[in-house]
């Protein structure tokens, strides 16, 4: 019952030096802040806990740990077992502009050591943040340099470590968080089977499932034609694009940005058609189709039929094994 264990609360530690941008990215990903809104955030004192419901049955227990040296000291001494036990994921944020990268690395090493002691099975992600401040030509090089140094300092996590260059001003942030969140989601295989079922009923090139509040890509299936898409980073591009637009809609209606995007969104362009629809309480589905009205309408109907199937998975994740076989069979 490995899946059941995974459904428990997942503790996610967000750490890094003070001012490196931890709270900013947390608010952008989970609280629908726009990038320019984060200016108003102050320094985080001690640890800010937040429980984030993700896909209904998965709760992320996010610990945003204030990064001032005094706090980091207590995490590593008096609160050591409290902070580092039962950790699912550690996200460590490096400021790319930091003047004392060696010192950051030293702190990082002591934190990974503490983590290895209490939660040896945790995943570690290192984000080289504020990459937008580096001239675009040098970004790849800078990240690669930092990655090598961070890897060396990671101790027992060096192998599983993933490093991303991120910026709150573009989609790189969504790429990193999409990958983080994917490491936490249970029964991805079942969801994938459902999506393939839906794919079979429509002529879709690609079907992607997004989490509602964060609009992070959870799952994706791609047809042979869809694989030819020249943008491998399209998921995080979509997250970024849609979240930006969601903020515009919220600004227009005058509400604070809630989790809702809209009931339905569609484009029919000369080269493609695209539908984004609410699928379940916690997800949106995006279907990319070849151009043409018939295909688009057919896809819409099938999404409606598939909705029920997916809804059952949202609430209970134990039952879907019996039902998984006949999904999508009602199409057309």
């Amino acid at each position: 019952m490995a899946t059941l264990n995974k459904m428990e609360k997942k503790k996610v530690l967000l750490m890094g030096k003070s001012g490196s941008g931890k709270s900013s990215m947390r608010n952008i990903i989970f609280s629908n802040y726009r990038a320019k809104d984060v200016r108003r955030l102050g320094a985080t004192i001690d640890v800010e806990h937040s429980n984030i419901k993700f896909l209904g049955n998965l709760t992320l227990n996010l610990w945003d740990c204030g990064g001032q040296d005094a706090f980091t000291g207590t995490y590593l001494t008096t609160q050591k077992s409290h902070v580092f036990s039962n950790v699912g994921v550690l996200i460590y944020v490096f400021d790319v502009e930091s003047r004392s990268f060696d010192r950051d690395l030293a702190t990082y090493t002591s934190i990974t050591n503490a983590l290895a002691e209490f939660s040896p099975s945790a995943d570690v992600f290192a984000l080289v943040h504020k990459i937008d401040l580096v001239n675009p030509e040098f970004r790849v090089k800078v990240v690669a340099n930092r990655e090598a140094a961070i890897q060396e300092a990671s101790g027992p996590f060096a192998k599983s470590l993933k490093v991303f260059g991120t910026s709150i001003w573009d989609q790189s942030l969504y790429k990193a968080w999409g990958s983080i969140v994917n490491s936490l989601i249970p029964n991805l295989d079942v969801m994938e089977r459902y999506l393939w079922g839906l794919m079979g009923e429509t002529k879709a090139e690609e079907i992607t499932l997004f989490e509602k509040a964060t609009f992070l890509a959870v799952m994706k299936v791609t047809s042979e034609i869809g694989k030819k898409n020249p943008y491998p980073d399209r998921d995080e591009k979509m997250s970024n694009i849609i979240k930006t637009f969601k903020a515009s809609l919220a600004k227009f209606t005058g509400d604070t940005a809630g989790p809702d995007f809209c009931e339905k969104f569609c484009i029919s362009a000369p080269k493609f058609a695209l539908i984004i629809e609410e699928l379940t309480k916690n997800t949106y589905v995006m279907v990319v189709l070849p151009p043409g009205e018939a295909e688009a309408n057919c896809a819409r109907l099938n999404i409606g039929i598939a909705r029920k199937r997916f809804a059952s998975m949202d609430v209970l994740s134990g039952q879907e094994h019996d039902e998984g076989q006949d999904e999508g069979s009602g199409g057309n």
Binding site: N229, I241, K271, F272
Partner: peptide, 20 residues
């Protein structure tokens, strides 16, 4: 809102409107 909408369409077309 309108210009954001256009941004959205243009951005989406860039990602998905590749030559088939």
């Amino acid at each position: 809102l309108g210009s954001d909408f256009i941004d959205l369409i243009v951005d989406l077309s860039e990602v998905h409107g590749w030559h088939r």
